[in-house]
Design a protein around this nucleic acid. Structure first.
Lengths: 146, 146
DNA sequence: TACAATTATTTATCGCACGATTTAGGCAAT
DNA sequence: ATTGCCTAAATCGTGCGATAAATAATTGTA
């Protein structure tokens, strides 16, 4: 039982799966108030950091395909948070711009981080280190995926 | 920019989100070969560890609701891996039993852990420790969710 | 000009997840 | 025995995310 190879494997993947799940549940009520889903929130965060990115650029940062992003972005556009504008320089590209409502949303989201930190029972330093380790793992997994 | 509160928050949640995502992608081809999805795989693992669990019991271990599990279990039953049998002792409960095919599937899944470990570029010890830390974080998040 | 590469969209399909409700069975008290 | 409460699972409705594969439009190049 202890040396069952299906054990460790399960738990490292399961740890990620369930922690992500728990994070989702924690965010849910706060994001509901903003009319955002979790992946949509991630997109908004990248836009708050840098407006006017292309679909592909956002996808590169979030590791999402355009076939996932396009409908998601349309929902954000329908909600009034962004505008999808085809680039003049390269008409293959679509630039994503925040609307004034999209910009305003950042203020409402500003209180979220403190809530997460608080619920984590961790210090900022601990979370930062853990974040880095998880990111390192992700990078390895991605690299060796193909 | 550096003290933007939306930064840290994003990244601890995003680290989990994207690492889970990467893990999913790594599993996908292997699980496709077994005719399983990721959550279905998790259910199978819990059954390989202990057969004959109730729906609620499985949900408790995986943090899933019956409204999520019931259809998932029906798909596993349709695939021939499990059987759903109402308990004689308490007819409110449904016991999930592996079929012979479900048991046999464990052998085919046995090679997965090594692949994951290999792709992680980590030692078993490192993964074990990281797993523990992530699990601790999950516990805190769950506890403070309500 | 023809061909290749890039960018995003579309189409089709599927499963997960949640909330709210419902059904059925168990359990306890009066 | 009936009432009422609790629990377990299923159901219903809804929506999003994700992937794969094909398509379209534009750009760049041989």
């Amino acid at each position: 039982m202890a040396d069952d190879p299906l054990k460790l494997d399960t738990f490292i993947c399961f740890a990620l799966y369930s922690a992500n799940h728990a994070m989702n549940r924690l965010y849910k009520p706060m994001l509901d108030a903003l009319n955002l889903t979790y992946p949509q929130y991630l997109v908004m965060v990248t836009l708050w950091e840098e407006d006017g990115q292309t679909v592909g650029g956002i996808g590169e940062k979030l590791f999402l395909e355009s076939s996932t992003l396009t409908p998601l972005l349309k929902r954000l556009e329908a909600a009034g948070f962004i505008q999808r504008i085809r680039s003049k320089e390269d008409e293959r590209q679509v630039l994503i711009h925040l609307t004034s409502e999209g910009v305003a949303l950042k203020k409402k989201a500003a209180s979220i981080p403190a809530c997460i930190l608080d619920a984590s029972d961790h210090t900022v330093e601990e979370l930062t280190r853990l974040k880095a380790e998880i990111t390192t793992l992700r990078a390895a997994l991605s690299k060796n995926a193909a």
